[in-house]
Design a protein around this nucleic acid. Structure first.
Lengths: 233, 233
DNA sequence: CGCCGATTTGAAATTGGTCAAACGGCGTGG
DNA sequence: CCACGCCGTTTGACCAATTTCAAATCGGCG
């Protein structure tokens, strides 16, 4: 895959207010990396030398414990930034999480030190990054609360709603919102096991709330999920 | 309590590189609020009009669900900033969490909009904020992973170690590290119930790992806790 | 057609939560 | 100065949600 155009780069939130000159400058200091499904742009613990902008495909950001079990922190879609914490500060030397592709993917890799220097003279970039980080903090804090206080059923409902909002493609004919994720993916995103997710989705399919298949979940009644997600008790 | 001195303000990480003029300017646009134990500087959902610097006391940042159950996101100690997300971006209109005092406390309240404007012409401030936010993200992500993958025993061990690192006062005579928290506080910090925490601490006390009392936990063998925290399987 | 990985399902095990009740120490008011 | 009461803590018994393990089934692709 070749370098993106300046107009494409403006789809990146952080670059919204960037001048063409700035974008050119950034492109001159970056390179495109294409990798196939299930491989990694970087691993937890790698030196955080680059920040990435996803050009195509999908990436999940995961963290593992010493036993190799893993959780997904978020899903990255095209024109979103990932691996950016290393650029925000001099302290972070390594990535705190891994980035694994869910499909064949390409990303623009920008040197962290270059980007950091650029931010010093470009307040709009620093504010863009703070904006980004604020969003991360709010989402992960909310998910932390859910994990601590809600049951699996509610968390899965919340997760599906969130995924639908981030990626959902409404099929034509009111056929519902289609999500391309395996049971295992959903399990890692909700802090549950593959088995529990499978049972739950089967149950919801029987009730007509969703319709599902291999690595695919189609939300038929989003409102029902919203109800389940907010179910007090 | 009266306004802090410039030298005291320099204990605030974000202000490390601030000039005296800048600090004076900030002080002129801020005010001191003193409140008693168990009351709130702000509530989740309030308009995020101020960011705070704790001057004395201790504050817990909590998030509640619609049932009123709550989790603690972190503990704030003097010269740390809290309620800052509203200053980092134009988007955040409200605090995503509440700030409740664990003791009588005082804090310097700085207008969010003022601080945001100041950051536009002070890169060191923006970088300080990004630094702060990076730390938040790393800690909450780690805790999220623990909550998803580890059992209560390991999480409590991790929590006590973390608290010891953040606040711990080493008693003289190698008597251990003293933490001033109730069982309920620890429960909210680990995502467990008061009862489970009580049982676990009783067990550890029998084993000589800690020594505890009312709203007090003294870590006698930190290394044992480290072992428990990292116990694979 | 056969294989491989994803999914489903059952049964048993287990962690941790819930509820009820008793305990204990500290501060306060009589 | 002491008794009382409050609030945090402890403990037991029971229960429920979810995980674990095993095995069968499905579905698409080479």
């Amino acid at each position: 895959m070749s370098q993106p155009s300046l107009n494409e780069l403006k789809k990146v939130n952080v670059f919204q207010k960037a001048s063409d000159d700035d974008l050119e400058f950034i492109l001159q200091n970056s390179l495109v990396r294409s990798i196939e499904e299930n491989s990694f742009f970087f691993l937890q613990g790698d030196e955080a030398a680059y920040l990435y902008i996803l050009l195509s495909g999908r990436v999940k950001i995961t963290q593992s414990n010493t036993n190799g079990q893993q959780v997904s922190l978020r899903i990255v879609y095209p024109w979103q930034i990932f691996g950016a914490l290393g650029a925000a500060t001099h302290k972070v030397a390594v990535y705190p999480a891994s980035s694994q592709t869910l499909e064949n993917s390409a990303a623009l890799a920008i040197e962290s030190s270059f980007f950091r220097t650029l931010m010093e003279s470009r307040p709009y970039l620093a504010f863009g990054m703070m904006n980004l980080m604020t969003g991360y903090i709010q989402e992960i804090q909310e998910r932390y609360r859910e994990l601590a206080l809600e049951r699996v059923e509610q968390r899965v409902a919340s997760t599906l709603i969130r995924l639908a909002g981030q990626s959902g493609v409404k099929s034509e004919k009111e056929a519902g919102i289609e999500l391309i994720f395996s049971r295992q993916d959903v399990a890692e995103l909700t802090g549950a096991t593959l088995y529990t997710i499978s049972r739950l989705l089967s149950d919801w399919e029987r009730k007509g709330i969703i319709q599902s298949g291999r690595e695919r979940i189609c939300i038929l009644k989003p409102h029902e999920l919203t109800l389940i997600a907010s179910n007090s008790n």
